[in-house]
C-alpha cells in the first residue's frame, strides 16, 4: 500500500536524518519504534507528504508524494497527531469529526453518517453536541482518532496513541486498532510503549540513527534483545519476565506468559 525507495531526507543540508530508506508496507498492523531522534517522526511526515524527500521516491496507494499537495493526499492516508490540542478546532464534536470528510467533498449527509460511525467506534457517539474542549485529554485523543477514521482512508497512522491514557483508555485504543485492521486498513503507529506494541502490532520496524535496523514480525523483533539494546530500546516487561523465567520462546502478552507457565513441563 506504501512503497518507499531509497528515500533520503535532511532538515539541513549535509545532515541527513534518513539515509536511503527502502520499505514496503502491506495491511499488517505495523509499529515503528526507536529512541528520540531515530527518524520515526520524519519518516511519518514523509509518508503523509508533509515533508518531501530530498532523494528517492514515496508512493502512497500508487501516487508519488512529490506530485501532489498534502491536501490531495489526505484522502489516501490519515495521521492522528500526538497532541489533540493541535488538531481540534470546531465547536462541537460532530462538526470536528465531519471536517475531514467535508474537505474530501463528501456530501453533508454522507459526511455526517461517516462521522457518526467513527464516533461510534471510539465510543463517543453520545457526545456529538459537546464542545470538544470541555472533555479531558484522553477523550480529545479519541475525538482526533475519530476525525481521521471518518475520512475513511485506507491507511491510518497514529502518533503515540497511548500517551496520557489510563488502563481503560489503552484498552479502547487497542480495540480501535483491531477493528480498523479487520476492515482491511493499514494501521501504523509510532510508539514508545513496548508492551502495547508487543500485544497489538503484527509487524515491528526498529529505527536507529536514520536507518532501519530490524523489520520483522513483532515476535521475531523482540527476540533480538541485543540489537534492541543497541538502538537504546528495551524489550517489553512481559518478554523480560518470560526470559527471566527461562522460557525458550519469546512471549508478547501476559496471556501467553500465563498459559506458558501453566503448561506442564
Amino acid at each position: 500500500m506504501i512503497k518507499i525507495q531509497d528515500v533520503c531526507f535532511g532538515y539541513n543540508e549535509g545532515q541527513d536524518v534518513l539515509q536511503g530508506l527502502t520499505l514496503e508496507f502491506d495491511q499488517r498492523t505495523t509499529a515503528i519504534i526507536g529512541q528520540n531522534g531515530a527518524g520515526k517522526t520524519t519518516l511519518v511526515k514523509l509518508l503523509k507528504g508533509l515533508l518531501k524527500p530530498t532523494g528517492g521516491d514515496i508512493w502512497v496507494a500508487g501516487v508519488n508524494s512529490k506530485d501532489v499537495t498534502v491536501a490531495q493526499l489526505a484522502g489516501k492516508i490519515g495521521l492522528v497527531f500526538q497532541n489533540p490540542n493541535d488538531q481540534i478546532f470546531k465547536r462541537t464534536v460532530l462538526e470536528e469529526v465531519m471536517f475531514g470528510p467535508l474537505n474530501m467533498k463528501v456530501e453533508t449527509a454522507a459526511a455526517k453518517q461517516q462521522a457518526l460511525q467513527a464516533l461510534e467506534m471510539v465510543g463517543l457517539a453520545d457526545q456529538t453536541d459537546v464542545n470538544p474542549h470541555d472533555l479531558g485529554l484522553s477523550e480529545k485523543k479519541l475525538i482526533s482518532i475519530a476525525s481521521i477514521v471518518a475520512m475513511n482512508t485506507d491507511i491510518i497512522i497514529l502518533d503515540e496513541p497511548t500517551i496520557a491514557q489510563d488502563a481503560a483508555g489503552k484498552r479502547r485504543i487497542a480495540q480501535i486498532i483491531e477493528q480498523l485492521s479487520q476492515e482491511g486498513k493499514l494501521v501504523m503507529t509510532i510508539l514508545h510503549d513496548m508492551d502495547f506494541v508487543a500485544a497489538h502490532f503484527e509487524r515491528t520496524i526498529v529505527m536507529n540513527r536514520g536507518k532501519v535496523v530490524l523489520d520483522d514480525k513483532t515476535r521475531e523483533v523482540f527476540s533480538h534483545q541485543d540489537l534492541l539494546r543497541e538502538a537504546c530500546l528495551d524489550t517489553p516487561y512481559v518478554t523480560q519476565l518470560g526470559k527471566q523465567w527461562g522460557l525458550p520462546e519469546t512471549v508478547l502478552t501476559t496471556e501467553e506468559l500465563i498459559s506458558a507457565m501453566k503448561r506442564p513441563r
Binding site: D166, A167, A168, D195, Y237, V238, L241, T254, L257, I258, M261, K262
Partner: peptide, 18 residues
C-alpha cells in the same frame, strides 16, 4: 484493583494468574 481503573504491574498480574 480493576474496579478502580488501575492495572497492577505486569509481574503482579502474571504471578497472580499462576
Amino acid at each position: 484493583l480493576a474496579e478502580y481503573g488501575v492495572e497492577a504491574p505486569i509481574y503482579t498480574r502474571v504471578c497472580q494468574a499462576i
